[in-house]
Each structure stands twice: as C-alpha cells, then as structure tokens.
Amino acid sequence: MSDLEIQAGLGRSPRANRQHRPPRRFGVAEALAGLFTIFLVTAALFPALVAPGDPLGIDPLSAFQSPSPAHWFGTDESGRDIYTRVSHGTGSSLLIGTVATLIGLGLGLVLGTLAGMLGPIVDFTVNRFLEVLFAFPGLLLALLFILIFGPGVATATVAVGLATAPGYARIIRGQLLSVRSSAFVEAATVLGRSPGQILVRHILPNTLAPLFVLGTLGIGQAIVWASALSYLGLGAAPPAAEWGAMLSAGRTYIGSAWWMSFFPGLFIVLTAVSATALGRGIERRLRHA
C-alpha cells in the first residue's frame, strides 16, 4: 500500500452496516479546506493580490523581526517579509506538486493499464516490475534519480513523480481488475455489447473517476515530498521563495527566529491537510452521488 491508498481508504474492507458511525454530512473541515485552497490558487496565480510586497526585496535594517502587524509572519535574515515570500512561493510549490502528481499518475496509468488490460502475461511482468520498484521505498527512488541527473527544481519534481508512480500503478491496476470483473460489466456482455463498447461505457469511466480523488490527495503528498528535497538541498535552492527552501534557510536561525521556519512549514501542512480533506470530500460525493 502507499500513502495514497491509505488516504483514499482503498484498503478498507467492505462492511454491511455502519450504524454506529456518525453520519457524514457537509463538513466544516471541507469548507475550511475549500477556503484555504481558494487562497492558495489566488496566491499562485496573482501573488501581488494577496501580498503586494517584493518577495526578494532586501531591507537589512528590519532583519529578524518577529511577527507583528507590519510583518504578519516576521522577517528573515535580510529583512525580507516572510508572509510575502510564503505567498509568492505558493505558485512554485503548487506547480511542483501538480506536475509531480501528473507525472506519477501518468506513469501509473500507463503501467496500471498495461497490467490490467493486456492479459495475464503482461500483468505478471508489470507486477514483478512494480515489486522491484517497491523495493526502492519512499524517497529512495527519488534520491537515486537525483544522483543521476543532479539536484534542482526540475529533477526534484520528476523524481517525486517517479517515486509515486508505482503506488498509482498498483491502485489503477486493482481498480481496473475489479471493474472488469464486476457484475455490471458482465451484464453488459449479456446484453451483447462488444468489448470496445464496454470499455468506453463502463470500464474507463469507473476506473478514471477515482483517479481524480487520488490526484487531489496526491498533490498534497507531492508538495510535502518535493519540499523535503528542497529542504535537503536537492531541489529548489535559496533565495528562491519556495517553501522547502525557505525552511532550509531558516534552519540556521532556529534558536533565534523560529518564525522563519514555522510559517513556510505551516503552509505545507495546511496545503496537505486541505488536499486530504477535499479529496475525501470528493470521494464521498462520488460514492453517494
């Protein structure tokens, strides 16, 4: 299982009654997550709208100021406003997360579809291949990739995409197999539909709908991973206003200026939590629509 499978609840066993479970209605958490996401997207597209200042503007006189009405999140060692920098960093962080997720989903889709559609021999081969990839757990595949192609934003993004691909592939394969063997596909066969018609009408829509959920959940995780690489000095490098890189820069001043690390990290956490909440919300809606 991967982080995503856990988050999407795909490991759950079927159960008959859930009478003791509190009914899930429209949640406050989902609403908050939605609001924060709107803020993030605005900040990513029009950073000046939420933070008019210059993210790289140096002001040595006001270095290391703690949070105040003038500098909501404080300032860093060069007097740059942390709030401005965090807001302006949203774009690159979201972009990295989205691109990495798309790469992972894309590769996963190719591998998963090959395994799920082309019969037992291909399935066996792809499965063995995935098993081998799973033996490079977590960041390992990403680190190996960076070793080969060198550090940097682009490599880190591709590396995260690559590292998440096996998980996606396995989920997609499982989904395809379960849809293919479902009773409604059989019912369509009995109605005399051709394999092509069944693929278009039943198999693809029912396989791809959950991908939307996976993608939403995945963006949050991808941002966490990519910023971890930046933090380790393998992704985006300071003074770029990228969350992981900002955290890394703040590391030296942990003792004196905690806000330099705290707020960029807070944004990473909030983004990941929002993605999870939204992904779950979408999943619930798909299931009970």
């Binding site: 369509a188 109605l191 029912n206």
Partner: peptide, 29 residues
C-alpha cells in the same frame, strides 16, 4: 438475464433511465 444481486449488475454511475437506454439502444456510442 436476471441476477440475484440486481444492484451490483447496474453500473453505479448510471441512472435507471441510462441503464434502460443502454439496454434499448445499440450501446455506448
């Protein structure tokens, strides 16, 4: 064919009308 578990024999994405239309018409296209 009529099955024991009717529910699982319907595509969960489709409404009653869509299910019957699929059966009446030539299929996906």
């Amino acid at each position: 064919a009529v099955y024991q578990d009717a529910l699982s024999s319907f595509d969960p994405r489709l409404s009653v009308e869509q299910v019957l239309r699929d059966a009446v018409g030539g299929g996906a296209g």
